[in-house]
Design a protein around this nucleic acid. Structure first.
Lengths: 153, 153
DNA sequence: TCCGAATTTAGAATAATTCTTGATCCAATT
DNA sequence: AATTGGATCAAGAATTATTCTAAATTCGGA
């Protein structure tokens, strides 16, 4: 599942201290988080909804949105956006960016070379406060690029 | 207007060779592009619409969207997205990223330090084809950070 | 157990964008 | 100069991801 050793790092649900959380880790929130951890494939809200529904049929889409917002605010997951497509959710805590394949639509985590941080070497206006760096790369993934090549032959 | 020398570079409307364009540079398209060049402040589609409407009252919002799409595909402007907020449009041809102030909502171009390209030092899956790098930085701009400080006193 | 705040639910509402359809424009050809 | 066909435009309807609303439910603490 992991493309490289050490490129995935998530928050262990078992380690969550609800007291320090500021909100309750309800059944729904836990289930939404579990579903995202299960596949790590950057699902959208409605994909999460479908998957959670299988194990918890009474959950509503609005709740999934609520849970995703809470989990995002708490830092459990990151919301990932590409153009105007539905937001996707990523539980990887590492410093990384996202690659979107314009052929198959897949999203995958991508990393900087050894020793360089996401925000490194950016020259920002003096006095600005940074809350978040986000790198999005659009292109064609190796699998789709290969297929495209074969179709040409 | 330019924060630093050499940080803005746009396509001169006068230099456009319609023959090579693949589409007509119509009144509407030209006006939309002109309006974006005029302020360089990353307007949204409806902001563009309002500004164009002043000089061309008969234009429709749908046409503004169409023009923006054409101009984007042709590489005249870049569509810039932040979370799920309305897309904004940037005519700066330089290799750069965008800083979003979460206080005032302003967007500004930001640049990498001398000699480093946007896509530099990213380690991508072997065989992937990159079409676009996009860096989005969220935070508080110097002006808003200053105001916040003063309010605390 | 009871209370109140937090959370969930269902459905309505919102808003940016896209789609549809008919009208208009314009360059190339007759 | 008139004709024609494809590109473009305009207006409004449709779409869709997301947010909002209001009522019901849950749950921890008094």
């Amino acid at each position: 599942m992991n493309p490289r050793k050490g490129t995935v790092e998530t928050i262990d649900p078992a380690s969550i201290d609800e007291g320090k959380l500021g909100f309750r880790m309800t059944k729904q929130r836990k289930m939404v988080y579990d579903v995202i951890l299960d596949e790590m494939d950057h699902p959208s809200a409605s994909e999460v909804f479908l998957r959670v529904k299988e194990r918890m049929p009474s959950i509503s889409l609005a709740t999934v949105y609520n849970c995703l917002e809470t989990l995002t605010q708490a830092g459990f997951v990151k919301q990932v956006n590409m153009d105007r497509a539905p937001s996707r959710y990523c539980p990887n805590q590492m410093d990384h960016g996202h690659f979107f394949c314009s052929e198959c639509g897949e999203v995958r985590d991508v990393f900087k070379r050894e020793g360089t941080a996401l925000g490194e070497s950016w020259s920002l206006p003096r006095g600005s406060r940074v809350e978040q760096f986000e790198m999005v790369i659009k292109g064609v993934c190796p699998e789709c690029a290969k297929k495209a090549k074969q179709n040409k032959k």
